Computed example of a mutant assay.
Amino acid sequence: MSYAALLAAFLFMAIPLWLSYKQKLGISREMLNASIRAFVQLMIIGYIITFVFSIEAPILFSLIILVMILIAAKTCAKRGGSFNYSFQIAFTALLTAEMLSVSIWVLFDIVEYEAQYILPMSGMIIGSSMVAISLVFDRLKREFDLTKELIMGKLALGATNRQASQELIEATVKAALIPNVEAMKTIGLVQLPGMMTGAIIAGSSPVIAVKYQLVIVLTNFGNTALTAIIVCFLAYSSFFKQKMF
């Protein structure tokens, strides 16, 4: 595929960009900037990964994964400005999910600990978990603002901070998992996931492609739920420590 063909893909952005400009929606610049950043970042990481594959050094691609986690945690922390130690909370959740995922993949001989398998699979896991963490930070603050008086009433009746926050935590985790739950319900019926589609296009058997995609989907869903729960339990106490009542 030529670079001209890749640039032609930007034509798909022409209609929404025109509509945004015409209707004065104010998202044209953001859409264009996001598209250009995605193009540049993916091209750069493509060359970096090619280099990593060529030297086959586990320590090097492990460091790359760590950098990915750090960047994801920093991105999540922007949403968690209202919480104490938002970066540390996001980093802890992401690192826990990544270590658990890789351990299962390697221990059960799903894939070998090699860059060509671990890097792309980890990228999908980290990216999905990052979205869930951002949703948790955002929804947790909203839910707290809506239920503050109810929480105060429970505390006045002798409930602990954890007991008073039960509905808050429950609503937040459920909301953070909505995108993943809905995607799981329609997978294979409405959408064919990216990894599976790519493998089939590359010439792999559809059945083999489905098996690998199931590994990703199930690991992704489990870790998204895990990171959402970890972040929620580590973050909600900030409301009490900061005396936000």
Rank of each mutant, 00 (worst) to 15 (best):
A199D: 00
Y113F: 15
E112G: 12
G153Q: 08
R139G: 04
K174V: 10
L214D: 00
Y47W: 10
I151M: 09
M68G: 13
I65C: 07
N180C: 15
G198V: 08
L94D: 02
Q191A: 14
Y85H: 14
T75E: 13
L25F: 12
V102G: 00
N220F: 06
T197Y: 11
L150N: 08
T227D: 01
I89G: 01
M184L: 15
A97Q: 07
K211M: 12
N161H: 13
L11H: 02
I55A: 06
F233M: 04
S165N: 02
E143P: 09
K22P: 06
M124Y: 00
K74Q: 10
A183V: 11
I15F: 13
I229C: 02
V102W: 01
E98S: 13
D138G: 00
G153Y: 07
A235R: 00
M244S: 14
S204M: 14
T224Q: 07
V102H: 02
I216C: 03
L226P: 09
P120M: 07
I59F: 12
G194Y: 09
R29H: 12
F144L: 04
F239Y: 10
Y85F: 13
E182S: 15
G194K: 03
M121C: 05
M43Q: 08
K141V: 13
V190K: 07
A34F: 05
A209Y: 03
G127I: 01
P193R: 02
S122I: 03
S2D: 14
S134H: 00
G127Y: 00
F83V: 04
I151W: 00
I169A: 10
F245G: 12
A72R: 03
M68N: 08
M152D: 10
F83I: 08
K243E: 15
I110R: 02
L119Q: 03
S82A: 15
T186R: 14
L7A: 09
A77E: 12
F108I: 08
A235M: 04
K22V: 10
K22R: 15
K211I: 14
V106R: 03
W105G: 04
T219W: 06
L135G: 01
F108P: 03
F245T: 09
A225D: 10
G123S: 11
L6C: 05
F83K: 03
F83C: 04
A159V: 02
F83Q: 03
M31W: 04
V40L: 13
E143N: 09
V231F: 01
I65Y: 09
I48E: 05
I126Y: 01
W18Q: 11
E182N: 15
M196S: 01
W105I: 11
M244Q: 14
L107T: 11
L119N: 06
M13V: 06
N180R: 11
L135I: 09
I201K: 06
D138H: 12
V215L: 07
A202L: 10
P193T: 07
I104Q: 05
K174C: 08
D145A: 07
A164V: 01
V231C: 14
G198A: 07
A57S: 11
A14S: 05
L119T: 10
P206K: 09
V215I: 12
I178D: 09
R79C: 09
L100M: 14
L60E: 04
E98D: 12
Q213E: 08
